[in-house]
Design a protein around this nucleic acid. Sequence first.
DNA 1: CAGTTTGGTACGATTCTCTGACTAATTCAA
DNA 2: TTGAATTAGTCAGAGAATCGTACCAAACTG
Lengths: 145, 145
Amino acid sequence: MADRPMSVGVLMFVAHREMERRVMAALAAAGYDDITLAQARVAERIAPGGSRLTELAEAAQVSKQTAGYLVDQLARAGYVERVPDPTDGRARLVRLAARGRELLPIADATTAAVEREWARHLGAPAMAQLRRHLTRLREITDPYR
Amino acid sequence: MADRPMSVGVLMFVAHREMERRVMAALAAAGYDDITLAQARVAERIAPGGSRLTELAEAAQVSKQTAGYLVDQLARAGYVERVPDPTDGRARLVRLAARGRELLPIADATTAAVEREWARHLGAPAMAQLRRHLTRLREITDPYR
DNA sequence: CAGTTTGGTACGATTCTCTGACTAATTCAA
DNA sequence: TTGAATTAGTCAGAGAATCGTACCAAACTG
C-alpha cells in the first residue's frame, strides 16, 4: 500500500475506532444493543454529577441540537435522565440513570482490557508515555476543557 | 468537571477531531468548500497509485456501500476518478483526479503546521515518541493494514 | 430596567450509514 | 474444464445523525 507516512491524526483515528468498536461490541454482547455509537459518544462524556447539554455538545463535538437529539434517545431508552439544574433555571443536567450506570462497569472493563493489550504490544513504559502525551495534548485540543 | 481519568481512546478522539477541524477549515478557506468530512476521510486514504473501493471502505472504517456513495460524490465534484483495475476485471481503482491533487499540498501543509504546534507544546522528543507509539499501535488496530 | 448573553428547543433539510439482495468477474478444486 | 465458492462492486430502501436557522426563556450586566 505504498505506506505514505501517516499523519498523527490519522493514526489516532485508527486506534480510536478500534477502541470504540471493542467497547460497542462488549456492550452489545452484554445485551445493551439498543445504544448507538453516536449515543455512546455523548453518554461517555457525562460527568459524574451530571452535565449540561451544551457541555456535552462541546465535549462530544456535535452541535447542541444533535446532542439534544441523542440525549432524548438515551433518555427514552432509560440510559440517562434530565434533572433541573439547581444553579440555573434555564439549564438541566443530564445524568446517568439506572440503566446507564449498568453500562459503566462493562465499558470500563473493556477499555481497560484493550489498554492492557496495547500495553502488552508497546510495552508498559511506552503506553504510559502515550497516555501522558495525549493527556497533555488535550490541553490545546479539547474545546471543552 | 471532576476529571475522571480519560481513556486513551477518548484522548485520541479529541486530538484527532481537532486535526480534522483544522484541515477542513484550511480546505474551506482555500475555496474547497464542497467536500465534506466524511468524503475527506475516504479521500485521505487513497493510496498514491489508487485504491480499490473495498480497501478504502476498510481503511476509512465504513461499509463498502458507504464508501461507494462517498466516492460517487467525490467523483462528481472532480476530486477523484475511477479507472479499471488492470489486474482484476471486477475491480476499479479510485484515484485522485486533478482537483483532488490540488488538495494535497493544502492538507499536507495544514497537517504539518498542526503537528508543529503539537510538537511545540509537547516538546519535539515527546512528539516523536507519540508518533512512534501510535505507528506501532497501528499494527494491531488498523483493519486495513 | 433595557440590552446582551446563555441554555435549550423546534423545524426542516441534507448527509451519512447500514442491511439485504443482487450481478459479474475471479479463483479454487475436483 | 466445469461447477462451487469467493470477491468486487452496485442497487434499493430505510433509519440515524447532523446541521442551519429561527426561536423562547432565564440569567447576567451595566
